[in-house]
Nucleic acid binder design. Structure first.
Length: 187
DNA sequence: GGTGCGATTGCA
DNA sequence: GCAATCGCACCA
């Protein structure tokens, strides 16, 4: 199965987010085991104006990967407990990324429905922050394109503070998929 | 150097 | 409904 090209990521963030549905997230563990899971839910964080984005207050040590050209990972820790995995998108100096919120389980019994659970299931932590998405540890494969009638858009989760940006439908998921996290039907 | 809080989760 | 748990952004 073909690995997604850098050109795939270096497009407008909402396009990339939509196109990530159905793709396969792949992770090789240090001991060699490869875990794979079909992406079923993502959220776009697009540009410096997006009040829900980490990049809204400009470049900081944490969010620097978001400013790079598309095709690398942005991994951060939240609540001191969980990690969240993002795919950096767009051109150099334009801060944008897509949070991967859920995949089908990469390992039997290990749910990857929810950004924290996903990172746990794939053994993703901050050591992968800034890591290329065409490398030995981490890559995405073509998978199966999801047709429009199977895709759905809703507002993003947990960004109530973001004013008008909270209402934008930047979350994409596969309709009726059992492994999506949180509400499925908002608008 | 001090303070407040979050792109979450699991348990009461 | 809320605690866990800490990196980081922000202010001084």
């Amino acid at each position: 199965m073909a690995v997604l090209s850098l050109a795939f990521y270096r497009r407008p963030t909402l396009e990339v987010a939509r196109d990530l549905l159905g793709r396969t997230l792949c992770r090789r563990l240090p001991e060699g085991e490869v875990r794979r899971g079909k992406i079923v839910e993502v959220e776009a964080y697009d540009g410096p104006e997006d009040r829900a984005s980490h990049a809204h207050r400009g470049r900081t040590p944490r969010n620097t990967p978001m400013f790079a050209a598309g095709g690398i990972a942005y991994v951060y820790q939240i609540y001191g407990v969980h990690f969240c995995f993002n795919v950096v998108t767009g051109d150099d100096d334009y801060p944008a990324a897509v949070l991967v919120r859920a995949t089908e389980a990469p390992v039997d019994g290990a749910s990857a429905a929810g950004p924290g659970k996903l990172c746990h299931a794939f053994d993703i932590d901050r050591s992968l922050d800034g890591c290329g998405l065409r490398g030995r540890k981490l890559w995405l494969e073509e998978g199966t394109v999801v047709p429009d009638r199977r895709a759905r858009r809703t507002p993003r989760i947990g960004v109530h503070y973001a004013g008008a940006w909270a209402a934008k439908r930047f979350r994409f998921l596969i309709r009726d998929h059992p492994e999506v996290s949180g509400p499925r039907r908002l608008r």
